[in-house]
Amino acid sequence: MGSQQRDFAEFYGTAADDCLRAVLVNVGDRDRAQDLVDEAFARAFASWRTVSRHPAPAAWVVRTALNANVSWWRRRRREVPVPDIAAVAGLAAAGDTASPPVDPAIMASLLRLPARQRQVVALRIFLDLDTGCTAQTLGIAPSTVKAHLARAIASLRDDLTLELQQETPA
């Protein structure tokens, strides 16, 4: 195995789970997220010499996966892809033992966020990128990243606090 391939394998081993979670937050479908991440990693492999020099290769993978998602839908139906909240809940209800489901309340709260907020959450929370790198990846100002993250956290707190109150009646 060449050094480039070893580098890539190491990158894949450390970043694949986080990238999958970041894409899942955005597309809402586990299988589709896996397909998109696989495709993005394959493209990263094909351009590893360039991607490895990227300041945040995992962010490159996530952005490539999300762009692939948009392109895929455009080619077929000229529609905006939408997250399937009910499918996620259905998956949880079905008890997918092969891959433990995400808490449906948390997933539903995330999918209710506006798209840009979800993208920021994906990069800041799941990839642990700093504000500057997130802004560069999404092509927006750092102050906009901060605003989106603050709004997303406020929405999630409202949703999840309500959820906890409903689960534990006084």
Partner: peptide
């Protein structure tokens, strides 16, 4: 809150073997 959200995804793991990704990348 961030910890709760992040922890809720710990069961989501990439299942594709790296050599399969590499094959796809070569293609």
């Amino acid at each position: 809150l961030i910890t709760v959200v992040r922890d809720s995804f710990t069961g989501v793991r990439a299942t594709t073997p790296p050599d399969q990704i590499a094959r796809r990348g070569r293609a």
